[in-house]
């Protein structure tokens, strides 16, 4: 989709254009929102995502127990009014752990994707705008990173840095860099041929200003879409690393880790696996639906 030559999505009226600028007619962002709102599935995704974000922010208020509050005598209690989601083998309240887990998963999702967006887009812009040998070096670097299966690369990075949530986050950020890099690079390749860029160059604008004020804003749409979808993958990858014991360390209530800790009891105490699993599924579903909706909404060909 990035190869499509954009039909002047934003008015190419000159260097002063700001993407957030309110216009007398209809701002492109308002237009996007209109289209997004019509998409029921996307709205549902947005609601799910907001729900988990609220859960994460208000975890201290919502969770009835602390996430590391053990009570060994309460091992594997089934769901009840005291423990809505039951307890794990340490007697910890699973509902509280799932609520606090939202904080961990969303944190990992947002921060790692933010990291890969920043690094990936910068590299992509540089590669796409300057071309030639800079492009060759950066693109080959991306190719090398993409040659590894992503989870394997993440495991390798964590193995080097040592298992911890922070290192898992770094690993996930690294494996997503080439995705954003390539996306932005190809977008830049088309944007830089636009007349307004030529105009900006003609009046002697510095490269850095052109990149930040013209090229980047005009490449934003695919980044937003890819970013939303990447958060979903990042959450799954963090859970996978946690499941393999290479992510969050005990007693952190990371969903993937909770699954790994409970997998032996899937018969005796299915609730220990069920609820963290559902939480992962719903969050990822939310981000995916939202990402899909954004893709449709941001696609200029779908414009009325």
């Amino acid at each position: 989709m990035s190869e499509i030559v954009e039909q002047t999505q934003l008015p190419p009226s000159g260097p002063e254009v700001n993407v957030n600028q309110e216009e007398k007619t209809v701002s492109p962002w308002v237009d996007v929102w209109r289209r997004f709102r019509k998409n029921k599935a996307a709205l549902f995704g947005a609601v799910l995502v907001s729900f988990f974000i609220l859960l994460a922010i208000l975890a201290d208020l919502i969770a009835p127990y602390g996430f590391k509050e053990t009570a060994l005598e309460n091992k594997h209690l089934p769901p009840s009014s005291d423990h809505w989601f039951g307890t794990d083998e340490f007697g910890r309240d699973i509902f509280s752990r799932v609520v606090y887990g939202a904080r961990i998963s969303l944190w990992v999702g947002f921060i790692s994707v933010a990291g890969s967006v920043i690094v990936g887009s910068s590299l992509g812009i540089i590669a796409g705008y300057y071309g030639r040998w800079v492009d060759t070096i950066i693109s080959r670097l991306f190719d090398i990173l993409l040659a590894f299966p992503s989870i394997l690369l993440a495991i390798a990075v964590v193995a080097m840095l040592g298992p911890s949530l922070q290192n898992a986050l770094i690993a996930i950020a690294i494996i997503n860099v080439p995705t954003f890099g390539r996306l932005v690079r190809s977008k830049v390749l088309t944007v830089k041929e636009e007349e307004y860029i030529t105009a900006a160059k003609a009046i002697g604008m510095k490269d850095s200003r052109i990149l930040l004020h013209h090229v980047l804003p005009n490449s934003l749409a695919p980044i937003i879409v890819q970013g939303t979808l990447a958060i979903a993958t990042a959450i799954i990858e963090a859970a996978a690393l946690g499941f393999l014991g290479m992510g969050a360390q005990p007693p952190t209530p990371e969903w993937g880790k909770m699954l790994a800790d409970s997998k032996d009891f899937i018969m005796q105490a299915p609730w220990t696996v069920f609820f963290p699993g559902i939480a992962i599924m719903l969050t990822v579903l939310g981000f995916n639906l939202m990402g899909d909706g954004l893709r449709d909404a941001l696609d200029p060909r779908m414009r009325n």
Partner: peptide
């Protein structure tokens, strides 16, 4: 691992 986690608490 789990005994350690319980001791930790």
């Amino acid at each position: 691992q789990k005994v350690a986690e319980a001791l930790q608490a």
